[in-house]
Design a protein around this nucleic acid. Structure first.
Lengths: 354, 354
DNA sequence: TTGTAGGCGTTATCAT
DNA sequence: ATGATAACGCCTACAA
């Protein structure tokens, strides 16, 4: 029965209770081998009785580092990022580290605040999905000795290790597939080019168009979403329909699956059948297969990316600062499902299906 | 250009650089009003130049509390919990607090580790979705002066404030609806009864059956899922089909939407049409409406629950320990979609399909 | 094997 | 308005 507001016990309290010195208590906690069995048991009993929990702040102050690693992602509601978080958390857990997870909402100001917090608490390492190309604060953090790994940021900052996926290749995969299915006009629902993911997937889309012998300016249209999520995708489609007499795009490449889900929903709400609009998403979320129209999507090794990032962090902690940073680049894969199958509208000749 | 491994500057460094005392630096940082304009600017310049970031561990040690609140949820991959996290984070942000988010995976051991970390770092408060009924550690934490709020834990622990949703009512809503649609035999895909959510929704299901004049033992079957997620739901259905000659349950109540998504996927993979099995989920995830078969689901005010929890935390910090703890209980609502519409199979008479 | 003492960086108290 | 100084709780030499 805890009594009310008892002040938290310190090593001193434990030492007194066990009739030993603080040094011995500290040894029992951190290097039990260095203490004789009898003393150890006596001290442990006192620890249990007083419910002593070492003060992390004091320990952090003394040792100069917090037993946790910080992770900043762009959007905590996107399953893509929580899956990454799992990878990081699991790898960190193997080393006895906890995870501090925060979401920047793609806002550089929020990102700054979060990184300041991590810096202030001297976390053991930081994994960051940058909200812009301005990684100054991260470089700075690394310069001060905190291991930092860039995640999902493709243009490598030489000083910082990074884990990325080839987003240009991913964009190409998606649009090549749509064009191969018969589309002649692709609309990409994209986010701000401040994000390299958006920029690169767009560049990939353009390359695919050129590779097909078409000109990007005529065969490819970019529509910006307000937010890179289902609501943003839905709003973009509603606006499109309003400006095009209710006529949907011929084919749709969405910068991620959430946007695609929103887009499909908006088409349906407008009385259209989303299955009639060939569509490709990105991230291959677990639920992509379970949607009204199972979604063709560009897959990334999400969990692995998280694990790898944590692993790079570990390596970096050991290595000396002059060593070249490792840059991992994964390749995306296209997972084809019903959403991109040529539908009635796209069949060039022959009898209409059904 | 940060130079290599420069040790992190301290108040002392700043004080020396600005030609003032450490106390003044501290004042500039924390109570700028108490410092004359001239000194303030001089000190601020030094802070900027040296890129001084106050050491959070030292501050924590001195003030006895970390400017963050800890949140433990059951499964970070479940959008239900990330939405809650958003609510907590937003409310915390209003008070200048950050969020430490961790996932217990419903594992009491993991939960213990996480709470120990929070305790060790003396977070400003803890919001926890308990992984079992054993909330001893939370009570203990509260006893030591850390504000604690229970989330989604219905049997109120008197000493601890809580935010909950009436899960019994939710279970009733779901099953009453299925029975009303003509089902005579309902299968509930449920998680471990160690979780009150599962226990209470099951109890609600039983009540609904009794209210309909049926006996729970004959009209209601519980099937346990291995994990409360899509994989668990899918596995449970696969097993069911194997034991029932490929014949699906007459009607399905899933303990949450993820399980329902997995169940629907498994039915489809078995060559069945999920639309033929009336189905109700729980949580009303944003994507419930976008599924192959739009999912009827019991809705909870997710974001609000998170915000309310953070709010209770704040109140608790002010109040004295003897004051009665607040217990918020929200009411769930049923959102009806296509998944629960009576289908062919349920028509009492008529020729067998196929 | 165990005890003693100094210092990590901050804030807060008390002088000036 | 500013400066000096004593904690906060822990770890770790070093001494016994």
């Amino acid at each position: 029965m805890p009594r009310g507001d008892a002040a938290r016990p310190s090593v001193t309290d434990v030492a007194r209770a066990a009739g030993v010195s603080v040094g011995t208590v500290s040894n029992v906690v951190n290097r039990p081998g260095k203490v004789s069995r009898a003393t150890r048991e006596r001290v442990q009993a006192a620890i249990d009785r007083l419910q002593f929990v070492p003060n992390g702040a004091a320990r952090g102050l003394r040792t100069g580092t917090l037993a946790a690693i910080g992770l900043v992602v762009l959007d905590i509601r996107n399953p893509f990022f929580t899956e990454i978080a799992r990878g990081v958390e699991d790898a960190a857990g193997d080393r006895g580290l906890s995870l501090m997870l925060a979401s920047s909402d793609q806002d550089p100001t929020r990102e700054r605040r979060i990184l300041s917090l991590f810096a202030a608490h001297a976390v053991a390492g930081v994994v960051a999905v940058p909200a812009s190309d301005d990684v100054f604060q991260l470089v700075e953090l690394a310069g001060r000795g905190t291991p930092v790994v860039l995640l999902d940021h493709p243009s490598p900052v030489e000083q910082l290790p990074s884990v990325a996926v080839d987003n240009v290749a991913g964009g190409q995969l998606a649009v090549r597939h749509l064009l191969g299915g018969g589309a002649e006009q692709v609309v990409m629902l994209n986010g701000s080019h401040r994000l390299s993911q958006c920029r690169d997937r767009w560049e990939g889309a353009r390359r695919a168009v050129r590779a097909a012998g078409l000109t990007p300016d005529s065969a490819l249209t970019e529509v910006r979403v307000g937010s890179i999520d289902a609501a943003g995708g839905a709003a973009a489609i509603e606006e499109w329909l309003a400006f095009h007499d209710g006529c949907p795009p011929e084919a749709l490449f969405c910068v991620n699956d959430l946007v695609a889900i929103g887009a499909a929903g908006a088409l349906r709400n407008a009385g259209l059948d989303p299955a009639d609009t060939p569509m490709v998403g990105y991230d291959n979320l677990e639920l992509a297969a379970e949607l009204a129209v199972p979604l063709t999507s560009v897959a990334q090794p999400t969990y692995e990316m998280g694990r790898s990032a944590a692993e790079l962090l570990r390596q970096q902690a050991g290595a000396d600062a002059a060593a070249p940073a490792g840059h991992l680049v994964f390749q995306p894969e296209l997972v084809v499902r019903a959403s991109s199958r040529p539908s009635r509208r796209l069949v060039p000749v022959g009898p209409p299906r059904l």
